[in-house]
């Protein structure tokens, strides 16, 4: 039976994890490769790196981070942030990423999703949708960390990018992100019910019950979280056991 996935996400800037993590026995709490190894050992189902490097000169550092991670971790790795061209995709895949997550570039040019899927296969094209509620039952895509409205309906956009070849969607509620108040379940449901591809729920996780809700009520195939794991509030296995006890099929150690 296919299991629900837990995906810790690391924000990486200039090759370092922003704010670090709070694990015991980690030599360097800011090194994404060290942290990736710790999550691999802890039983995470996949890993996600979000590269938020701002300067052009440092954009290449992520390739080395991905390469070193792929040498040490035999689990799926998704890398996003600044993926704008098919050459960006190719370089990340060659470095050892299994999937790339496309965000702004897909909003600006939907055909980029088709190009990526045709060249590299749908299985490695994740489209990241950052959405904010604008009215009851309506969500709009926002870019630039939730500051820039685009006027694009998030649910319709989800359908479009899947038709163009996206193999998975990473849906983040910008209203919930960083609040710890739980996923926007209505948003998740609106998208998971519409598309055939797996959806990763993101934004708002503060408790283990939120993870349960994402899968049980939001119908997500995977849940992405950052701070609850990074700062040692919960371990991956606590999260998995909690979800399994509530009837969600999980890959337990």
């Amino acid at each position: 039976m296919l299991k629900a996935r837990i995906i810790p996400c690391l924000d990486v800037k200039d090759g370092r994890v922003v704010k670090g993590v709070n694990f015991v026995n980690l030599r360097d709490a800011g090194d994404p490769v060290e942290i990736a190894k710790a999550y691999d050992k802890a039983g995470a189902d996949e890993l996600c790196f979000l590269d938020i490097t701002a300067t052009h000169e440092n954009r290449g550092i992520i390739f080395d981070v991905v390469r070193r991670t792929a040498e040490a971790c035999f689990m799926p790795l998704t890398v996003g942030g600044g993926v704008r061209t098919t050459d960006d995709i190719r370089k990340l895949l060659l470095a050892g990423a299994d999937k790339v997550s496309i965000n702004t570039a897909a909003v600006k040019n939907r055909d980029f999703v088709r190009q990526g899927a045709e060249k590299f296969g749908s299985q490695c094209i994740v489209v990241a949708i950052d959405a904010k509620q604008v009215a009851e039952g309506q969500w709009q895509i926002f870019t630039h960390g939730g500051r820039e409205p685009t006027g694009i309906d998030a649910i319709a956009f989800a359908g479009e990018v899947v038709a163009l070849g996206a193999g998975e969607l990473l849906v983040t509620s910008m209203d919930r992100d960083g609040t710890g108040t739980g996923f926007d379940i209505a948003l998740m449901r609106a998208i998971t019910d519409k598309v055939r591809v797996p959806v990763i729920a993101s934004g708002g996780v503060g408790t283990l019950d939120h993870l349960v809700e994402g899968v049980r009520d939001g119908h997500a195939s995977a849940v992405l979280a950052a701070s609850i794991f990074h700062f040692g509030q919960f371990t991956i296995s606590q999260a998995k056991n909690h979800m399994a006890e509530r009837g969600i099929p999980m890959r337990l150690a």
Partner: peptide, 9 residues
């Protein structure tokens, strides 16, 4: 059930 079949089985 979603397609692709993606994840751990």
């Amino acid at each position: 059930l979603k397609i692709p079949h993606m994840g751990w089985n």
